[in-house]
């Protein structure tokens, strides 16, 4: 039997259209789908490269509340991989950039670090060029431009920039990954953002109170207590948020203070 004949018999066995037309059809479809999925011209390396994802997500959440002469920035300290594995319990996601500017991030930690480095470099250069510190408004704009600069390969982070502005008032700037910027009285970002924000709406924004009701004043003590409560609630329900709260408090004319509180231990 020649090789040609052998191949013919093999093919006939695979596609036996006479005795098993449905089976033949199925076999043909499978083979066709396979060819479509893995065409011969796609090398193993090409497939690997196309499957590679430049981003990862380390979870966690962060929030900031601005007051008359202070700003409270809070974040959890957990870092997760794949939403389940805790890879670090003591990560700092709040980065004080100068005496009156604090950057806080959630999302892809690699991008967050890169973003911090970028801002630090810019701030350093500004200090060198102008012999003064950058104001938080300026830094906020700088960050927005830098985020939008990478419009089509963005830093995968929900950033919040907080600080004390030149009038001595607390300032919070909220961003999306591509540099949409907004100055807000309070903001949250990260995995537990949908849990933090309504709570702050209720307690800081007083949106659920009817008109004419007396509103409690937002003191530093109240703001820190509220932020702690907000994170306690989130740690209860959101698995990538937990371990401990890292609070950074910036007051006008005072150095930045750090505070750490344990969250539920799981």
């Amino acid at each position: 039997m020649s090789f040609y004949q052998f191949a013919l018999i093999q093919m006939a066995l695979k596609y036996d259209a006479k005795h098993d037309p449905l089976g033949a059809m199925r076999a043909f479809k499978t083979a066709f789908a396979d060819v479509e999925e893995n065409p011969d011209w796609r090398s193993r390396r090409l497939i690997e490269r196309q499957r590679w994802n430049p981003y990862s997500m380390e979870g966690g959440s962060t929030c900031a509340v601005a007051g008359d002469n202070f700003v409270v920035v809070a974040s959890d300290t957990r870092m997760t991989a794949g939403e389940i594995n805790v890879i670090n319990r003591e990560v700092d996601k709040i980065h004080p950039l100068s005496d009156n500017i604090v950057l806080t991030t959630a999302g892809f930690h690699g991008d967050a670090l890169q973003m911090r480095k970028l801002l630090e470099t810019h701030l350093h250069k500004y200090r060198f060029d102008y012999r003064s510190n950058m104001t938080v408004d300026l830094c906020a704009e700088l960050l927005a431009r830098n985020l939008y600069y990478r419009r089509f390969f963005p830093y995968y982070t929900g950033a919040i920039l907080a600080g004390i502005d030149e009038h001595g008032k607390g300032a919070v700037f909220s961003y999306d990954p591509i540099g949409c910027i907004e100055r807000l009285p309070y903001s949250a970002s990260g995995a537990a953002e949908p849990m933090l924000v309504p709570f702050l709406d209720c307690q800081v924004g007083h949106v659920t109170l009817s008109e004419g009701t007396e509103r409690p004043k937002l003191t530093l003590e109240r703001a820190t207590a509220l932020v702690r409560d907000a994170f306690r609630g989130c740690a209860e329900r959101e698995i990538t948020t937990g371990d401990s709260i890292h609070l950074v408090i910036a007051e006008a004319g005072k150095p930045i203070r750090h505070e750490r509180r344990k969250l539920r231990e799981d």
């Binding site: 537990a192 949908p194 849990m195 933090l196 924000v197 309504p198 709570f199 209720c202 409560d229 907000a230 306690r232 609630g233 989130c234 209860e236 329900r237």
Partner: peptide
């Protein structure tokens, strides 16, 4: 539901 959980928890 997700928005509710955070506030209700508090």
């Amino acid at each position: 539901a997700e928005y509710l959980l955070g506030v209700s928890e508090s």
